[in-house]
Design a protein around this nucleic acid. Structure first.
Lengths: 320, 320
DNA sequence: ATGAAAGCGCTAACAA
DNA sequence: TTGTTAGCGCTTTCAT
């Protein structure tokens, strides 16, 4: 009836009635029931966003991009966290789809068959983000991690480093980290090189782990001349360790991480890294859902960003 | 009908029918419509969680505690972010309440009158968290920030520091930071002291800001013997700066932050801080909503944790 | 500009 | 154990 029209600013309502309704609503502390509304209209202003974790600053940053782009579309992001677990992803997705959102944004291209089936059957725009190495269900926005790994390796090799160690997380389900390493190793192989040593870690403070792993790998392998970290946090820990030890960075030992996190900005020395274009990724993904994509496409969009290499102070100038 | 019973494991259903229904559901990729379900049952398994920000690791940690406690209750957290803005809080709360959640958890005790009215009218458990200095609407879980500030000041004074500077954020709506400072100053006043200097900052990388602010405050005030930071990130930046400058920490200059963030664990020197009991706060708040609170109370619960002082390596041993 | 009525897809109570 | 029915609080359409 009329009340509904007022509250949604739809249809013609006389200014007078309108005012009276608004007044009454405010007085009663009335909050419309979106459950009933959603059921009746078959539309819900929610966008499901499914990410692996919140304790890695990378994802909140993507979220910012999403919120930003959704700001004045009337759409609202709803976040689900999988903890890098495929079964959790399945559960979270199921739960979210049961609310009939207007779209789904989810990290990565690797999903269980059940997830893929649900997504295909949902009949709403799906955007997979932060990785483009694989076959998307509908749209995809992100960088190629294989390429990121490859380009970092090429830069390192061009700078003349040869005895390269890798330090990363022990997370079989972090597909993006895995792909970076694969790309990295592929590029090394093409140059006739291979990793001189590797070191992996589980949970705990990433900064401290970076420190400890660096100590460990250098302890058993004194002649390494480069350390490639799978993320900036452990890279930063390693960098602090190297500085304390008075090592010659980047002369005798080069370092590089991945992500270009904010934190790097406050370290005494700038760690080399690669920017994953997180904010833009979030923004573009949200635009696709909101139907505001510049391309005007309805689905099946593919947006690949180029990862940006930031040389910082921990990789020496190239040569050969 | 029967289908509904199967999907919710309720009522008696023969194993055979049950199996057939499940099979069919799976085949069709059927996902039940919680909108209709919620409308019919007048119950929704959502818990609204409203926090100021996701880019401060503090809140994701509280969230972990909440998720943890909600794990096997059938309840699901839904997060809303206010960016420390009262009007955003109002909008987010309104939006969330319109989904008729089973409870609301929100940071802080300071809300607009409109928010308070909505919360009181909602008829569901409300838990305000992370601060107990004020009048709660229903239940409250957290620490007293005034007390945290006070206790830090007392420890600093007891350690013999006298020329104390404060470095914090320029956030009028961060009530918890404000209360800490108030408590801190009150304790100084009781000892016949006052802040020797202060420095505030806006946005940007907190680590870098900490570094810059420290340089600035020490630049104009060479004789400060203690720097109290309103959070660990700027504190860590300051600490790195002091170490680089070769300052005698904690002998000639003491440092302390607040929050006990994970990151501190990886720094070369352990920054003094105070633990805000974030995970426990989230856990207890969630338990209240889930009705699993050990107290058995139905509402109006009050849980105050004692902030834990962690002396680290940047405050010298007490004396007077 | 406003009212009336149907029905969104479920759940809850009851009937069979 | 299973089927039937009446809403849940809105939106939508159609009448007035």
């Amino acid at each position: 009836m009329t009340i509904s029209r007022v509250l949604r600013n739809r249809g013609d309502v006389s200014p007078d009635t309108r005012a009276r309704v608004l007044e009454a609503a405010r007085k009663l502390g009335y909050v419309p029931n979106k459950i009933a509304g959603g059921l009746a209209s078959q539309r819900v202003n929610l966008v499901a966003v499914i990410i692996p974790s919140l304790s890695n600053m990378v994802f909140p940053e993507v979220l910012s991009g999403i919120s930003e782009a959704l700001e004045d579309t009337g759409l609202q992001p709803v976040v689900g966290v999988t903890n890098y677990s495929a079964s959790r992803e399945e559960a979270v997705l199921y739960e979210m789809l049961s609310w009939r959102p207007s779209g789904v944004i989810l990290a990565g291209l690797e999903h269980t068959e059940a997830c893929a089936a649900m997504l295909r059957a949902a009949g709403i725009p799906i955007v997979e983000i932060m990785d483009v190495d694989g076959t998307p269900i509908d749209s995809v926005v992100g960088i190629s991690h294989r390429r990121a790994g490859r380009e970092m390796a090429e830069a390192i090799i061009a700078a003349g480093y040869r005895r390269i160690g890798f330090l990363g997380t022990k997370m079989p389900d972090d597909h993006r980290a895995r792909k970076r390493l694969e790309g990295f190793q592929a590029a090394l192989a093409e140059a006739g090189l291979e990793l001189a040593d590797t070191e992996f870690y589980g949970g705990g403070s990433a900064l401290r782990k970076g420190r400890e792993m660096t100590e460990a790998i250098l302890g058993r392998n004194r002649d390494l001349d480069f350390l490639y970290y799978s993320n900036d946090m452990i890279g930063a820990g390693g960098l602090l360790y190297c500085l304390e030890q008075g090592l010659d960075v980047p002369g005798a030992l080069g370092l590089a991480g991945f992500n270009n996190v904010d934190l790097l900005d406050g370290l005494p020395v700038r760690l080399a890294t690669m920017d994953a274009r997180r904010r833009e990724t979030g923004r573009r993904a949200a635009e696709i859902i909101a139907g505001k994509s510049p391309s005007g496409l309805v689905g099946g969009e593919r947006i690949e960003f180029a990862p940006t290499l930031l040389r910082g102070d921990t990789v020496r100038e190239g040569s050969g």
